[in-house]
Amino acid sequence: MRALRFIVVVLVTLFILGMQSVQAQGPGTLTSGERPFNNENAHKVTGDTFTFKGEVTIAGRLFNSYGYVYSGWGTFNISGWDYFVAHVGISDNNSGNGEVIIETDGVQVYKQQINAGDQAITVSIPLNGRRTITLRAKRHIIFAEPKLYKGKTPSAQPTTPGTTTTVTVTGTPATFAIDPNDLEKLATALRKRIDGRPELAARVARGKVALMTFSLVDITSASIATNVAEDLSTSMINNDFQLIERGQLDKVLKELKVQDTALIDPATAQKLGQLTGCDMILVGSISDRGQFVVINSRLLETATGKALAAERVEMRKIEIKR
């Protein structure tokens, strides 16, 4: 009898898991309608899961549900869906500012700085046959009433004053990714090189570093540089580098009209230091060498533009199958 009960439990469990797997495979039999953007309708590919919660208010406006990516980013399978829509903002329970970045198939399609107290921004993204969507949300950014649409065009109009943004998906999809573990090796190697020089190690311990977005060589997808900046930032913090907050850095770069961070001259480096409070900046390049990728990095002193340390690491290419 116990054996029979055990078999029944196993079969029921397998059935439930099978049903969950089916539910996570896009819109299924839905031909026209909408569904909440959650882990049932858009299952995780990599990064963190999408945590779905109840009511929330943004700038006094009540939303029935919201979600966020706990670790700051996650990539999800949206095959078969036609639109992703969400009201992006910061909950009235939080303060400060944040940044949201959205990518489809590795191509950045939306980026916005958001302050606490701002009206929610309604973002409508046509998926155009794309297979994945990546949500990157820094600080306290949340996605209120996130939805996926099939067979219909969402109105995406906020019920109270705010901003509506309909995104046009452009750009070159990435054909490969760089393993975050390899970027950890770069941060570790740079830290080891610095620690080998006590005077420089003391300066780095006292000062702050601004991590630039690295330039691309023989690579057409800008999302690779964005992903490297995100993952390398985490690795550097884990290796005891004090980094300037990304939103503050982007604001200063915009003010200085710096387009290519690989071409920062000593005068610009000095201005960066004055406006952000950083003592050093890390610049570099990401180069496609066929079977592998090479990242060259240089730590520059903002006061003079002088290179204090440099590191080069070869990294594996992880093919993205579409």
Rank of each mutant, 00 (worst) to 15 (best):
V100E: 02
S124Y: 03
H140G: 01
D118P: 00
E99L: 08
D105P: 10
D105A: 03
K147W: 03
D105W: 09
P146S: 07
Y110R: 02
N94Y: 10
Q108I: 10
N93F: 02
V123I: 09
A120Q: 14
P126I: 03
I141A: 10
E145M: 08
Q113F: 07
R136D: 02
G117F: 11
N115D: 15
V107M: 14
I141C: 11
V109T: 10
T134F: 01
L127D: 04
Q112D: 11
K111R: 13
P126S: 11
F143P: 01
I121G: 05
G98V: 06
T134Y: 00
R130P: 05
Y110D: 06
A137E: 01
G98Y: 05
V107N: 05
V107E: 07
K147C: 06
N128W: 02
K138A: 09
S95V: 11
L135P: 00
G117P: 03
E103S: 12
V109R: 09
V123F: 03
I133S: 07
I141S: 11
A116Q: 04
N128P: 02
L127W: 10
R130Y: 03
V107K: 10
R130Q: 12
T122C: 12
I141E: 02
L135R: 04
R139P: 00
V109M: 06
L127V: 08
V123L: 12
A144T: 07
H140Y: 14
E103N: 02
Q119F: 07
T122P: 01
A116E: 00
S124P: 05
K138D: 08
A137L: 04
E103P: 00
I121W: 08
G96L: 06
R130T: 15
Y110A: 11
I102K: 06
A144Q: 14
T132G: 08
P146G: 08
R136C: 01
Q113S: 12
F143H: 00
A116W: 04
I121M: 11
D118M: 09
Q113I: 04
A144E: 09
G117L: 03
N128E: 14
G129K: 07
I121C: 02
I141Q: 13
Q112R: 15
R130L: 11
R131Y: 12
K138V: 01
S124E: 13
G98M: 02
A137Q: 15
K138M: 12
Q119V: 05
T122N: 00
V100Q: 00
Q108M: 07
R131N: 14
I121Q: 09
E103Q: 13
P126G: 13
Q112L: 09
A120H: 11
K111T: 14
I133H: 07
I133K: 04
E99Q: 05
